[in-house]
């Protein structure tokens, strides 16, 4: 079974920062365009700093996602199957009977953690 990784705080931080940059660059673009409209100026493409901010946000997102995502699983079924223990053979959850000695053995035993 996949072991849960400890939450990668750095990864999450990177994702949050990436989102903030994206949002900020989007808003800057909107402001820039409305400024141009108000001033009736030519549109000559976005200013350089907005583009750089956008690319940075993409990079941060990429970094963050890679850190936050789970480990890869093996592609061969074989390795997954190898982890299957032989106990799964005898365990048939719908077919449990209770006439075994478990009830007697554990009756007076306190199962502590």
């Amino acid at each position: 079974m996949a072991v849960q990784q400890a939450p990668s705080y750095l990864g999450r931080l990177a994702c949050v920062l990436g989102f903030l940059f994206l949002f900020h660059s989007g808003y800057s673009t909107f402001e820039h365009l409305s400024y141009l409209k108000a001033v009736d100026g030519h549109e000559s493409g976005l200013p350089l700093d907005i583009t750089i901010e956008l690319i940075m946000s993409v990079a941060l997102f990429g970094l963050g996602i890679v850190m936050v995502a789970d480990d890869f699983k093996e592609i061969l079924m074989e390795t997954e199957m190898a982890k299957q223990s032989i106990e799964s053979l005898d365990a048939r959850p719908s077919f449990y009977a209770f006439d075994h000695r478990g009830r007697a053995v554990f009756r007076n035993v306190v199962l502590k953690n």
Binding site: Q84, S85, E87, S88, P93, L111
Partner: peptide, 8 residues
Amino acid sequence: ASAERKPD
């Protein structure tokens, strides 16, 4: 998930 019988 693994359906092992480990009641204890």
